[in-house]
């Protein structure tokens, strides 16, 4: 393991993701005795949004001002955080809700794109806001997930050096 990974693991604030995991596990635990086959559709969107928002929240780096002028760029540091947060969230998602992966990734990409341009707090709020709006309006929360994810990916690439 390269010297950089363990301090990166420790530098990440895992609390938001841990909170989301507890919520997902609790819902799974409640649904299992009821004999439900998977999560109700409306709840899947909210769960994915909570998980994506928590992953984005984990990208917040309190030491970013101190690290702003080190040779290792912010993009590389963010990439390392994402390498740790992304698969962890995905694994939790598959184990609990087992919902659509593409939808989760699209929400995560939207959150990350917003975080790059408007700050981590706004980025973490975006997936949740979308899920709540979609649920209230009766829309499919993962509509055009591939397209949305790709568009968000472009925004991320454009803002990678921010």
């Amino acid at each position: 393991m390269s010297a950089v990974w363990w301090p990166t693991v420790r530098a990440i604030s895992w609390a938001p993701l841990a909170g989301a995991v507890v919520c997902l596990l609790a819902v799974t635990a409640v649904l299992s005795p009821l004999g439900a086959r998977g999560w109700p559709a409306g709840l899947v969107g909210i769960g994915a949004a909570a998980l994506a928002g928590a992953q984005v929240a984990g990208m917040r780096d309190p030491a970013a001002p101190l690290l702003a002028a080190v040779p290792t760029s912010a993009a590389v540091r963010r990439g390392r955080r994402l390498v740790l947060l992304g698969p962890t969230g995905l694994a939790v998602w598959l184990v609990t809700a087992g919902g659509p992966v593409l939808g989760l990734l699209a929400l995560l990409a939207c959150g990350l794109a917003t975080a790059l341009w408007c700050g981590v707090a706004a980025g973490a709020a975006v997936p949740l806001a979308w899920a709540v709006v979609a649920w209230s309006a009766g829309w499919d929360w993962e509509v055009h997930a591939a397209l949305v994810g790709a568009a968000a990916g472009v925004v991320i690439v454009l803002g990678r050096n921010r």
Binding site: P7, R10, A11, D61, P62, A63, A64, P65, L66, A68
Partner: peptide, 12 residues
């Protein structure tokens, strides 16, 4: 470089 408000990781 030392910024005006250098954030640190409290658990470190």
């Amino acid at each position: 470089y030392l910024p005006q408000s250098p954030g640190l990781y409290p658990g470190f």
